[in-house]
């Protein structure tokens, strides 16, 4: 009762990173609230899920194991969460802001009449005063997210309804093992008590999931290009620089929209959130929506011909010049000085 739940997303028997990141966050919140961290997995052949998630500090793992639950479809997974939440009455429920989480979350929130905040970038615990009703609420979940195209940051609370639900994008929270040896309790659900036959009305006929080729989140160095790169031809310089430094290439939305880079390389509010050791922003102006996805990089170098580009205000090193001039020099002097 009154615990924190994380919905586990599973593909090919592997728990998604975003779920592990949420477990890490959920563990911290549960410590603060002095409650349990619980996880729920719905799918088929889930024997190996426990060993993947217990190290993140899961106290109880609920398994709904049934052939019909994989691949994911909306209604049966909704029924499992809705019925389980009715029994367990969690205070907080978290899921990934993914194609699955954003399909499932609103459905569950609608059934339980509880509020849901999509795409949170931070989750905290705090108090809330409802001045009109003259009520003070302690220990609410602050669901913090950008709004209005990233121009404002809003803190949302759900004072009265439970669970307080939020989705978070992959890469926004950090994942961290709590205790590699920890083993929590496993509860196997009797699936037929949770779903009904009418839940299986949508049939998946075909499914092609690709493993992402680009792993921006894990890259210690990111060389990112913006509209200022000018052309797909010029963009190739970034691959050269990334190759010599051992990094990955990222992009702004303007670069993606203009076809210079693939969508999966986009960094920012509607792309991936990254926090590498070094971020080199090349021909990126530094609009709020871009900065939202890279501001936590340990070191930022900005290369921009405009001395007043907004990106410069958050950069550790500002090189005022053109990418055509600066990038080849960086490659040249790295080759000369390394080893």
């Amino acid at each position: 009762m009154n615990n924190i739940f994380v919905y586990l997303e599973i593909e090919d028997g592997i728990v998604a990173d975003v779920s592990l990141e949420l477990l890490t966050k959920g563990r911290t919140l549960a410590d603060k609230q002095q409650c349990k961290l619980e996880a729920v997995a719905a799918g088929y052949q889930l024997d190996k899920i426990g060993e993947q998630v217990f190290p993140y500090g899961v106290d109880t793992l609920y398994l709904a194991d049934d052939k019909r639950l994989s691949p994911y479809t909306t209604l049966p997974h909704t029924s499992i969460l809705v019925n389980l939440f009715k029994e367990e009455k969690p205070q907080i429920a978290l899921m990934g802001a993914t194609s699955i989480g954003r399909d499932l979350g609103p459905r569950v929130s609608s059934a339980l009449f509880s509020g849901l905040t999509a795409d949170c970038t931070a989750l905290e615990i705090g108090t809330y005063e409802d001045k009109k009703a003259g009520k003070v609420y302690d220990d609410l979940l602050y669901q913090i997210r950008p709004a209005f195209g990233g121009n404002i940051v809003a803190t949302i609370v759900n004072p009265d309804c439970r669970p307080q639900m939020a989705t978070v994008r992959e890469g926004v929270m950090k994942k961290e093992i709590r205790n590699a040896k920890h083993v929590g309790k496993t509860v196997k659900l009797d699936v037929s008590n949770y779903v009904s036959d009418t839940d299986f009305v949508i049939e998946v006929i075909e499914r092609h999931m690709e493993k992402s080729k680009v792993n921006l989140k894990a890259a210690p160095i990111i060389v990112a290009g913006g509209y200022g790169m000018g052309s797909a031809e010029n963009f190739k310089m970034l691959y050269d620089l990334a190759a010599v430094l051992g990094g990955e290439v990222g992009a702004s939305r303007a670069a993606v929209d203009s076809g210079m880079a693939e969508h999966e390389r986009q960094i920012g509010q509607t792309g991936t959130t990254v926090r590498p050791k070094l971020y080199i922003a090349c021909g990126i102006s530094g609009q709020i929506q871009h900065i939202a996805g890279m501001q936590d990089s340990s070191m930022i170098i900005a290369i921009n011909s405009d001395p007043d580009a907004p990106i410069n205000t958050i950069a550790d090193y500002v090189i005022t010049g053109t990418v055509e001039d600066v990038i080849p020099k960086m490659i040249k002097y790295y080759k000369k000085n390394s080893k």
């Binding site: 009449f113 509880s114 509020g115 849901l116 905040t117 809330y128 409802d130 602050y142 669901q143 709004a147 404002i152 940051v153 809003a154 803190t155 949302i156 609370v157 759900n158 004072p159 009265d160 309804c161």
Partner: peptide
């Protein structure tokens, strides 16, 4: 159910 606590 959701209330905006604060906007910055």
């Amino acid at each position: 159910p959701t209330k905006v606590k604060q906007i910055e």
